[in-house]
Structure formats: C-alpha cells, structure tokens
C-alpha cells in the first residue's frame, strides 16, 4: 500500500513537467501578449520594452522556461503582470482557500443529499417518487450552473431580498447560500443518478435477497448491507466532481461574486498574465491528481477485495 502511494506520487513529477511544458509554450504561442493594449490607450513601445525587461520576457525562451521552473520548484510562482505588486503565491493563498471551502461545502451538500435521494429512488423504483426524483436529476444535470446561480440571485436576491445579490463573507454567511447551492446542484443530480443505478444492482444481489428472506426491515437492509457496496461507483464519480468543484467554477464564482481561484484563472488567461496562468494551472493539476489518488485509495476501504500492492 505504502509503495503504491509512493509510486503514484512519483508519477506526478513527469506529468507536472509535461503540463508545465505544454502550458508554457501554449501561452507564448497564443497571439497577443500581456502588454498588448486591451483598453483604449496605446502602450508606448519604450514602455512595453521596459515592461518586457522588468519581467524577463526579453530573455531567450529556454532561459525563461528554466528560470520559471527553478522558481516554481522553490515555491516562487512569480509576480502577477496584471495586479501590480501582488505575487501569484499571494493570489493563490488568498483565493484558493475560498474555492476549496466552497467546493467542499458544495460536495458535502451534493453527497449528503444526492446519495439518500438516489437510494430512495432505487428502493421505490418505477414509482412516482422515482420518476419525480429522476426528472429533477435530469434538470439538475442539464442546467448550467451559471443559469442556476443567476436565477437564484434574481429570485432570492433581487425580488425576495433574502440574500445579498453578490459578494463573499465566509462560508457561514447568507452570501454563501447561492454559490454553494448553484455549485452543488450538478454533482448532486449526478450523484443521485449514480447512487440509484448502483443501488438497483446491489438490491438484486443474492445476499440482499437472503437478508429480505430472513425478514429484515427494508431500511436496515439498505443502510447496513447494501449501501456500502452501492457506494463504490458513487465514490468514483464524486471524486471527479470534487476535483472539478474545489478548483473553482469560473461561472459560479463570477456570477455570485465569490473571489475564488476559478474566476482568477480565466481572467488571467484573457489578460495573458503568464505567471498566474502557470501557477494556477499547476496547482489545479496537482489537486486533480491527488484527488484521483484519494479516490483510488478509498476503494480499498469500501471493498475489502481491492488491494494495492
């Protein structure tokens, strides 16, 4: 087990290096640079030259490649071009925890509601409850999160005025309700569907039939015997969503005014803010890989037949 984890962690290194290389050259191959005018004013050539020099963009490409990598290995992800006086490290330190908290809260809601609802639908297969829940799940999956967020803001913020229309005041505030729910809806619906189909497989298994024959109550069968096995596919899919959700959703963060990392990444791409693009991409890559590893390891906990050597 320990050897397996170590191998997986070591495998991160070449993957990250590959991502670094691809992003590095892709950024520079994209037309338009960080100081090409974006507003209405021309950037004077002398000034642009000074900026290029200040941020070492006049160095040969291989040197830029090596220098940034060396810095990153020492934990220095460089300065932001757009936000003068701020570093990528500071930006990540400011915004990543917010995305992380928001994402974890959304996943807690998604799993906490999605799994029981999915199981309920499975147990009541082909009844009105089942059809109703799965209808809602299809809507949940097919509605983009920014539409959900916008509708929630207009209804609960503008018309009912129960919650502020945007902003962030921590996870335990009224402001957090809309982003958490908007972010949770899609994984919630997906988790519910997976939980349902997985539970349907399990309740047809012999051991469940035996438990029924012995006269156990339905609730006890589902919770004590079927649930654990039914959860394996759910964990896989939840892992994928978790990585997706904690790295920040650009749309939900933008619409609800949450200062998270997802929105920062997108803005930095349109500003060609190279260090921010690189720093956040590497961070997101690490998170996705680590979450995948955790998902794989959790299989062993749920199913004693799975062993990692």
């Amino acid at each position: 087990m320990r050897g397996y984890v170590l191998r997986r962690l070591l495998a991160l290194i070449p993957t990250l290096l590959l991502i670094y290389t691809i992003v590095f050259f892709l950024m520079r191959a994209t037309p338009g640079g960080p100081w090409d005018e974006t507003g209405t004013r021309p950037v004077f050539p002398e000034v642009k030259a000074n900026l290029m020099k200040k941020y070492h963009l006049t160095d040969p490409l291989w040197k830029q490649y090596v220098d940034y990598l060396a810095g990153a290995l020492h934990g220095d992800l460089g300065p932001s071009y757009r936000q003068r006086g701020r570093t990528v490290n500071e930006i990540i330190a400011d915004f990543f925890p917010i995305s992380l908290r928001l994402g974890l809260a959304a996943m807690a809601v998604a799993i906490g509601c999605g799994v029981p609802l999915g199981f309920l639908a499975a147990v009541r297969q082909d009844t009105r409850v089942d059809r109703g829940l799965m209808f809602l799940a299809v809507i949940g999956i097919s509605t983009p999160s920014f539409v959900v967020a916008t509708v929630l803001i207009v209804v609960f913020g503008v018309y009912l005025r129960w919650v502020p229309t945007s902003g962030w005041a921590g996870l335990l505030s009224r402001q957090a309700l809309i982003p958490v729910f908007a972010l949770a809806l899609w994984p919630l619906a997906a988790v519910a569907r997976y939980a349902r189909s997985s539970m349907l497989d399990v309740i047809r298994a012999d051991y469940v039939r035996t438990a029924k024959a012995k006269g156990l109550r339905e609730l006890a069968i589902v919770v004590r015997h079927a649930a654990k096995n039914a959860l394996i596919p759910v964990v896989t899919i939840a892992g994928v969503y978790l990585a997706f959700v904690v790295t920040g959703s650009f749309y939900v963060e933008s619409v609800t005014g949450v200062p998270g990392l997802g929105r920062y990444l997108v803005l930095s791409i349109s500003a060609r803010d190279y260090p921010v693009i690189m720093g956040t991409t590497l961070l997101l890559a690490i998170i996705v890989m680590v979450v995948n590893l955790i998902v794989d390891l959790s299989y062993a906990l749920l199913d004693p037949r799975i062993r990692y050597e």
């Binding site: 916008t150 207009v154 913020g157 503008v158 502020p164 945007s166 902003g167 005014g257 200062p259």
Partner: peptide
Amino acid sequence: FRIAPAGELCGADFRAYEANE
C-alpha cells in the same frame, strides 16, 4: 466599494442596485 469580478461586473453592479444594496 463592493468588489465584483470583471467578467460579471455590469450584471453584479445592476442587480445590487436593483436590490437596494
């Protein structure tokens, strides 16, 4: 000054105004 993200500034600005915030 409540700070809203650049991409959604106009919408955030107007909705906050409409909600009397």
